[in-house]
């Protein structure tokens, strides 16, 4: 068993333990949201952290997944398991069409391009009321069941979500460690040199953009059939910004960064309810503090803190030695 597999095995065990030991429905709900957000952050982290391309409209793909499956199942009683591939294919197709021109942009311009795309999709969700239910939202989305096995029990849904998240983590790890992943990192480091060694830079950016959109649509599917009600507000600009924040806070170019970032940004609002009116201020302060003291993100920051902690005990001993 290679050592690099160890963290994944430990994490799987942790997830399994949580699934078996937690009893409180509210706790399950939070853990499910962490899973959904991890899926979103994972795709975006690949795009931003590895390929170096920013997307300020990622909530649009999240929404496309949720609305495609929601509309198909609520309006036309399509099986969710048939609606899922439809949602993924639609998100992939839209990502491809949008990415083709916008990924030729870079830096701020790509940010603006994806921002505009996110706004357009948001407006479509809100204004195409006959299909999406408009601003008041889409009701009647059925919960999931697997054959005779109902998945609306929070524990069952927790396992469904987290099995998918773990699979996505392993697949993303594989992607990063492959020829494709090296090409993506090469683009991030020096697009010029990447082209010069034969990497079709635009093609790879497009591929990772589509991959991240598919993960986002998958997250949207899981969200829609968990809450069974969706409205445009869940897929607006602020959600896109929150996703970017998860990636940056968690740590760019890191699978674990996606998990940490998603967990922190999901848990913080829950913990901060106690601050009532000051909630957003405390929230902002915490994010600023993390960025000041851990500019590489939580993952790197925690590893560094651990290394410092390990070195510490050696120091008091040295003055005593002759």
């Amino acid at each position: 068993m290679p050592r690099r597999h160890l963290p994944y095995i430990l994490f799987t065990a942790l997830v399994a333990a949580a699934g078996l030991l937690v009893t409180n429905t509210y706790h399950f709900q939070v853990l499910i949201f962490i899973g959904i957000n991890t899926l979103l952050a994972l795709g975006l982290n690949l795009l931003m952290g590895y390929a170096g391309q920013i997307s300020l409209g990622h909530a649009a793909f999240y929404g496309l997944g949720a609305y495609t499956s929601g509309v198909l199942t609520a309006h036309w009683q399509v099986s969710p398991w048939l609606a899922l591939p439809a949602a993924l294919v639609l998100a992939a197709g839209v990502a491809w069409v949008v990415g083709l021109p916008t990924l030729r942009l870079s830096g701020y311009y790509l940010g603006m391009g994806t921002l505009g795309f996110g706004m357009i999709i948001f407006i479509v969700f809100r204004e195409w009321a006959s299909l999406t239910g408009g601003a008041s939202g889409l009701v009647g989305i059925p919960p999931l069941s697997l054959g005779p096995l109902p998945l609306y029990d929070p524990r069952a849904y927790f396992f469904l979500v987290w099995i998918i998240v773990l699979a996505a983590m392993v697949l993303s790890r594989r992607l990063i460690d492959s020829r494709v992943g090296r090409a993506l990192r090469a683009i991030h480091d020096s697009e010029n040199a990447a082209r010069a060694v034969g990497v079709n830079t635009h093609g790879y950016k497009l591929q990772v953009f589509v991959y991240s959109a598919v993960l986002a649509a998958l997250a949207g599917f899981l969200y829609a059939h968990f809450i069974c009600f969706i409205s445009p507000g869940s897929f607006g600009f602020m959600v896109s910004v929150r996703l970017v924040t998860m990636v940056v806070i968690g740590g760019m170019a890191s699978i674990w960064g996606a998990v940490f970032g998603a967990a922190l940004l999901t848990l913080l609002p829950e913990w901060l309810h106690a601050f009532a009116d000051f909630e957003m201020i405390v929230y902002g302060l915490i994010l600023i503090t993390v960025m000041i003291f851990m500019p590489q993100g939580l993952t790197r920051g925690l590893i560094d803190a651990y290394l410092r902690f390990k070195r510490q005990p050696a120091q008091p001993v040295s003055p005593a030695s002759p």
């Binding site: 697949l171 492959s178 020829r179 034969g198």
Partner: peptide, 15 residues
Amino acid sequence: VGRHVRTRCGFWGAL
């Protein structure tokens, strides 16, 4: 990365 054009593994192969 320099081997890029002499290798073939794509997205699907990587996954």
